[in-house]
Design a protein around this nucleic acid. Structure first.
Lengths: 340, 340
DNA sequence: ACTGCCGGTATTAACGTTCCTACGTAGCGC
DNA sequence: GCGCTACGTAGGAACGTTAATACCGGCAGT
């Protein structure tokens, strides 16, 4: 295997010391112009590319951050991932990437791997909003962390959308249309992610409607298949709902598919609200009423926050804050007044 | 900022040399059992985590590979990305990730960044199947590369699905239903990705049907919006097609949305075939006839191939091969005989 | 008693950088 | 002609790890 060019190679060819070569390649004003020119010429010939690892070792920073997501089937997460990676590359940071697949073990493994590679910071969409001890530990050991979701407790910085308010507004919308029995398709709060259900309860309470736990269907994740299955469950109830609030658009689309199969028309016979406003939401039939937010904004805020933490070098002592991105309800055609 | 524990710290605390510590932590049989035990105890107390960068520097391998995709809006790519990352982590490799966003510049930047970080290999879904000189160069400089797409020329190894055959089968299906004017929504072949159109032509030729260039609508990428727009174009033709072949499922869904708006029923008035068989394909209305292939298989094959190249350390001299994953047509309800 | 070996540990150099300090030469003023 | 400064370049250590080699004491064999 051909070896890559090193400073030393350039040094030997030009007759200068590696140190001078290093300075020249950094455009240091200390080296004479012609020296610099000669060095650059040779460097280009050899296709010299600095070894970032060696650099990291002495600089004590890898210019790399780690991104851990639960999965990237959900388009809104992929979109965030893409935006994050792009924003980081703009700041000359590389992105190490891993998916936890909703498994705490895999999440820990990924974080461990990243820390071993001396990432300068971590961006994590945690599997379980409650179990973040391992993340806190990484932070305490000196690696800044920003979570991409989370409640209002602040042992770690977070930039997230306000799911609670989003869910509350979506429920509000259904209530204002006249719905009184509203089904929910959500991730199991055993995973600690109860913001959306809290928003749902908030809205019900404001209207003096009692919570019927039967109307809440939970699964380990919320994808197309889960939405499809959950819709079946809700329809099988003695008193089925007249509207469904899904934790994300994919679950909503899955649910609509099932309703369609059962001959139930959306929105005539049943209203459905999604969450995330993925591109697809506008293109399915019927176009989905959903909770929208700016994923790119979320990504860039999270990146900025993380970079600030890295620069400040105060991962630990800082007062952690949770920053929310405002959700907005987009009303399309999957919701209407209840029949009768 | 707290400093992370190093071998030297453990050495000082235990009284042994750093070398002995290193050996002990590697479970070397050379060190006495009690020495090893003492070292391990202290290591755990200090939460010692080896610095993989330092290790990489001396071992001359980073145990990291770089993954470059065009974008991850297309679910099939995200799925591959996830599978790839998982497979790599299983082999104790970390994944550096970047999206080129269909821009050659960004692709180059990403690869440059990765090479600087001494990745042991690259997995690239190239922006442009024709312009891969920069990728070949990386390979020539000693970094193994496996492409995730590509034609039959083999200056670089590739594991890809046989798009040509896939498109040919899809077209075949439409022809056998009786369609004679089949529209195509594809990415602009200016980007060098003409496999699908070639498959389409193959099928037409086999049936002795002349190619009508008017029926081929091209765009810079193939997403929902592009499908939506392209359907409009096809319908505006003097002699519109009776069926549409879309380069991927998202484009197909976008197209169906447009057809729906125009009051054209799928599959009664118009058949539509997608490509990729994303999860969604089964959940939209009507369920999509599409070309399916095993993305996970593709991912694991690509990873295996790359790891083999890395181990063999023969990035350059090896005879490069393109390995195809077979596509399969899944017939659902978006295709039917033409009217009348 | 000397050699040889062996288990256990230490020493040293190396990986490719960067940073700090040192060195040499030339020009300048006195 | 002496020291001073300025400029350009070189040397060395350091980052945290691994690998090759060196060392050292004790025991067995002759």
């Amino acid at each position: 295997m051909k070896k890559r060019a090193r400073l030393k190679d350039i040094a030997e060819l030009t007759g200068f010391s590696t140190n001078t070569v290093s300075l020249a390649l950094h455009h240091s004003p200390l080296v004479a112009a012609e020296t610099s020119a000669a060095i650059w010429t040779v460097a280009r010939q050899l296709k010299y590319r600095p070894n970032q690892l060696a650099r990291s070792l002495v600089n004590q920073q890898s210019k790399t951050i780690g991104l851990v997501l639960t999965n990237i089937q959900n388009p809104i997460l992929t979109r965030a991932a893409e935006a994050i990676q792009k924003a980081l590359l703009g700041h000359r940071y590389a992105t190490l990437f891993a998916t936890s697949n909703h498994s705490l073990e895999q999440e820990k493994l990924a974080i461990e791997t990243f820390l071993g590679r001396q990432v300068d910071g971590l961006l994590v969409y945690p599997t379980h909003h409650g179990e973040i001890a391992h993340i806190v530990e990484a932070q305490e050991q000196g690696t800044p962390v920003v979570l991409l979701s989370g409640g209002r407790d602040a042992s770690i910085d977070a930039v997230a959308i306000d799911s609670r308010v989003g869910a509350q507004r979506a429920t509000e919308h259904l209530l204002s249309l006249g719905h009184r029995r509203i089904g929910v398709i959500d991730i199991a709060p055993a995973l600690g992610n109860f913001e959306k259900q809290d928003g749902y309860r908030d809205a019900l309470k404001a209207h003096g409607i009692a919570l019927d736990r039967e109307l809440i269907v939970e699964a380990g994740r919320t994808g197309l298949g889960e939405g499809y299955a959950a819709a079946g469950v809700l329809l099988g109830l003695g008193a089925p709902p007249t509207a469904i609030l899904a934790a994300n658009d994919l679950a909503a689309i899955g649910a609509i598919h099932r309703l369609d199969e059962m001959g139930i028309s959306v929105p005539k016979d049943m209203s459905v609200v999604g969450f995330d406003n993925i591109d697809l939401a506008a293109h399915v039939r019927p176009p989905l009423t959903t909770v929208s937010y700016d994923a790119d904004l979320l990504a860039s805020r999270a990146v900025e926050r993380l970079l600030r933490l890295i620069e400040a070098d105060v991962a630990v002592e800082t007062q952690h804050q949770v920053e929310f991105v405002e959700p907005e309800l987009i009303v399309r055609n999957s919701t209407a007044r209840p029949k009768g």
